[in-house]
Amino acid sequence: MIHPIPFLLLAAVAVAAALGMLLSHNAVHSALYLVLNFITVAIFYLALNAPFIAMVQVTVYAGAIVVLFLFVIMLLGAERLRSPVDEVRGPERFHRYTAILLALVLVGVAAYLLFQGGVDMTGVDTTAGATLDASPQALGLALFQSYVFPFQVTGVLLLAAIAGVVIFGHTKKRGEDNA
């Protein structure tokens, strides 16, 4: 799949970027860390023999979704809403500690499973993936043959999203007109 050293380097970048997003005081910086994370993951996809997904990841996530985030942040001027280390009040403290505790449990479970031996790899031909035809053609055929119904449903979903966004934008404008 990939040599451990580049893997660990990339993984370190990915985790650092994720943490940067989590801890950044400035929402724009959070967004930039998120882009870094996405691009690292895209490189993982390339290494995992998924070039199409890698390119889609960059185009959609980095090129569209995060730009949208930045757009909204700049529109609202919301980059410095409140830092994460503000004063902590009663119920919030409970929330925070519970959350961190549960997160630790989650990582702990994963670590436990991996030390138990991880995924059972007997009988799985791990070389098949390297020669798997993941070209856009193959992916397209899979999409339009086995997954044609989900594909249509996704189209409907996107249509619904467009309608929803238009309605949100629209009602506001009319409200302003009335005012």
Binding site: V35, N49, P51, F52, M55, V56, V58, T59, A62, G63, A64, V67, D133, A134, S135, P136
Partner: peptide, 16 residues
């Protein structure tokens, strides 16, 4: 595996 065109789209999309 050639995804040259997609690469172009990806790069133009991050040029913003």
């Amino acid at each position: 595996i050639n995804v040259g065109v997609l690469f172009i789209l990806a790069v133009t999309s991050i040029s913003v």
